[in-house]
Write a protein that binds this DNA or RNA. Structure first.
Lengths: 110, 110
DNA sequence: ATCGTTTATCGCCGATAGACGATGAAGACT
DNA sequence: AGTCTTCATCGTCTATCGGCGATAAACGAT
């Protein structure tokens, strides 16, 4: 009985772990729905947690490349990485038995 | 700026957290691909961890209803919950900005 | 150069997760 | 009855997580 390749499983687990916190789910969904870059301050205001806490969440989401950062003057604007918009849901398909649609390179960094 | 409903975000986070471990990803993918119930002993042999550890992982996966259990003689057979096969990937769509396809009741218990 | 704004990082904490071995419970089989 | 198999649960260990305040770093503006 064959297991899914370990490193592939670890990659998926990393993606899922990035979304294992409800606040991070809300942040990602917000950025995906707004469909425009938001500053850290705007996100802090939206979620209502300490700035250091939000910054930590953003670091985690950016670490798996769900988010991209770009400086704008003094602020740092976060936006969703469009390359993940389909790649992540397809990971959900894989673990549910649907074969991976195509190989391609992974969206999050390895 | 509106956030995703908190309880909905918590539900999704719970699903993702259940798959935040590579071993659980492998277990779920194995059961989905084999498409037949497997006993704990078979799963233990496949993943190569202690039986108590695997049992713990199975409890987590069953806790969110990704897996269903059914006793068969002395063994306990685990299989994937077909009702989750589409519901979980659609959660991945939601956090990526795609609107939820339809309401329906959640697959995991609340 | 100094100030104010914005964001990241550090250190600390309580809580949770993952691993294991040992023990316990439920059945099957003589 | 006893025994063997199969699995869940308990207790313990260590490691990681999520939160916060405080501090540092980067930059624009004065």
């Amino acid at each position: 009985m064959e297991l899914l390749d370990r490193s592939e499983a670890e990659t998926y687990a990393t993606w899922f772990r990035a979304l294992s916190d409800p606040t991070r789910v809300q942040i990602l969904e917000l950025l995906a729905r707004e469909d425009r870059p938001l500053s850290v301050g705007e996100i802090v205001a939206a979620v209502g947690l300490a700035q250091s806490t939000v910054s930590q969440h953003l670091k985690i989401l950016a670490g798996v490349r769900f988010l991209l950062v770009e400086p704008d003057g003094n602020a740092r604007m976060y936006r969703v990485n469009e390359r993940c918009l389909s790649r992540f849901p397809s990971a959900a398909d894989v673990v549910m038995g649907r074969p991976a649609p195509d190989a391609g390179d992974a969206c999050p960094e390895v």
